[in-house]
Nucleic acid binder design. Structure first.
Length: 447
RNA sequence: UCCAGCGUAGCUCAGGAGGUAGAGCAGGUGCCUGUUAAGCACCGGGUCGCAGGUUCGAGUCCUGCCGCUGGAGCCA
């Protein structure tokens, strides 16, 4: 037995030319095909997938016999030579993309079985969603989940990169909060040594305090909403990035948001082409995502809906069907501004008419709906106080928030971008639950 | 919470004119030196979601319950 050393990972083979180099890989058996005296194993190591070729005349007899017994998800260590193979090159004209289509394969010289897995539940055939969700801890090993969660990683990294470059600092908002940020939605209640606390549904009020201390800040983390929603765009626990800027107006955050979204998409295109191919994503749709985005007001959006024959009452908030119709009408994200104040929370600054607020929602294209919601904040003490009283906000919980308007108040604005919805759009998923490792849904939180 | 649909092998499904269960994948045994969800042959595998009812007889019809999925409201 040859001593196996010099381990590398599959992503290095995919990205660098290692042809004719001898490499050692450790990973899990994805699939085995046998054709008599030649066998093919697809190996996954968490960084990618690669085809191993085992020729009977090229390895010890015992090794060839071992391949016969390999089962899905068994762990192996393999040594071999990287070779190019045109059969494994991606061809735009071929309809199907296979995970092993990376242009390279390994001609195996030596192989060890480190663990033999029995009866792995997720087979290469189709499975129902109920079964897959019960096996989410294993499902994440599957190729599409591999692709999605790696893209999620790029999305998160690119957001941090972008905001850091723009001069923002990450400012962590608390997850346990003594009161609601937005009155209407439901909160998860926690017993806090006899007091009531809640899981945060937005870090926004806290990043406003941060912006007045550090100028440009963002929080980035999970948020929780106890809404009994059961749709393809809802999770009870989801991740959100919330930038907030001092000395900023609605226009500034619109500019920031569209640059940020464009940056995210460009980074995914740069770093995750392989993953996008696994997902069979239409890449031209993503290449199109460059500023400026389309921009309409709430009023114009209502007119658009009416012109498409949808009976929509002015003054209502858009539901899922309306968002879908609007976003499908555009090939880039669409920014909708100036909603009626009655359907938006108290902290949003009113426009000159006092009927509408200085807010914006951004709807992703291809029917994906709202991925961003933001606004310029009310920065005048008296006006904010009056609006809070009108909406019966418990003032004692928000004294600190009112303080921000008493001590050096400035124009400021910010927005929140939902990570799972963004990932779902970029990956063209049918449900946000695939965009997070362990989704938390209504009545579904195992594993 | 409301509306709709579905629960049959480890998984995906067929059987849906009441007559005691079938295919593919996975697993097992063989064959094949370029496979791409490889292919071929053979083998093992079932409280037909649960409880009750109708019937000589229920996977199939009826009632209730449970579970799941999709959609709505709410939202990122």
């Amino acid at each position: 037995m040859i001593e196996i050393t010099d381990r590398i990972t599959i992503d290095l083979i995919r990205k660098n030319n290692l042809v004719n180099k001898e490499v050692t890989l450790k990973g899990w058996v994805w699939n085995v095909r046998s054709s008599g005296k030649i066998k093919f194993v697809i190996l996954r190591d968490g960084t990618g997938f690669i085809q191993l070729v085992i020729e009977k005349n090229n390895v010890d007899e015992g090794i060839f016999e071992m391949i016969e017994k390999l089962t899905q998800e068994s762990v192996i260590e393999v040594k071999g030579v990287v070779v190019e193979n045109s059969r494994l090159k991606f061809d735009k004209n071929k309809p199907n993309f296979n995970v092993a289509f990376i242009g390279y394969e390994i001609i195996v010289k030596d192989l060890k079985v480190l663990y033999k897995t029995q009866d792995y539940p997720i087979t290469p055939k189709e499975h129902g969603i109920d079964f897959l969700l019960d096996n989410r801890h294993l499902w994440i090993r599957s190729s599409k989940q591999f692709a999605i969660l790696r893209i999620r990683n790029t999305v998160k990294n690119s957001i941090r990169e972008f905001l850091n470059k723009e001069g923002f600092i990450e400012f962590d908002s608390p997850i346990l909060t003594p009161s609601a940020c937005e009155g209407t939605t439901t909160l998860f209640e926690i017993d806090y040594f006899g007091d009531k606390m809640y899981l945060s549904q937005s870090g926004q009020l806290y990043v406003e305090a941060g912006a007045l201390a550090f100028n440009k800040v963002y929080c980035f983390g999970p948020t929780f909403r106890a809404e009994k929603s059961k749709t393809r765009r809802h999770l009870m626990e989801f991740w959100m990035v919330e930038p907030e800027m001092a000395f900023a107006t609605l226009e500034d955050i619109i500019y920031l948001a569209q640059n940020m979204i464009s940056y995210i998409v460009s980074k995914v295109l740069e770093d995750n082409l392989y993953e996008l191919l696994i997902l069979e994503r239409d890449i031209s749709k993503l290449e199109n995502i460059k500023p400026p985005f389309y921009r309409i007001t709430y009023k114009e959006a209502v007119e658009l809906l009416n012109s498409k024959g949808i009976n929509f009452e002015f003054g209502q908030d858009f539901g899922a069907p309306e968002e879908t119709v609007i976003s499908e009408s555009f090939d880039k994200p669409i920014i909708i501004t100036n909603y009626p104040k009655s359907i938006k929370p108290f902290y949003m600054k009113l426009d000159d008419s006092k009927e509408f607020v200085l807010n914006m929602d951004i709807l992703a294209p291809e029917g994906y709906g709202e991925i961003v919601g933001g606004s310029q904040r009310e920065d005048d003490y008296e006006t904010l106080l009056k609006r809070m009283q009108e909406e019966n906000i418990p003032l004692k919980d928000y004294q600190w928030y009112l303080d921000l308007r008493k001590y050096g108040t400035v124009k400021h604005a910010g927005f929140g971008l939902g990570i799972e919805r963004t990932v779902a759009w970029i990956c063209k998923l049918d449900h946000v639950r695939q965009a997070i490792p362990f989704p938390r849904m209504l009545y579904r939180y195992y594993p």
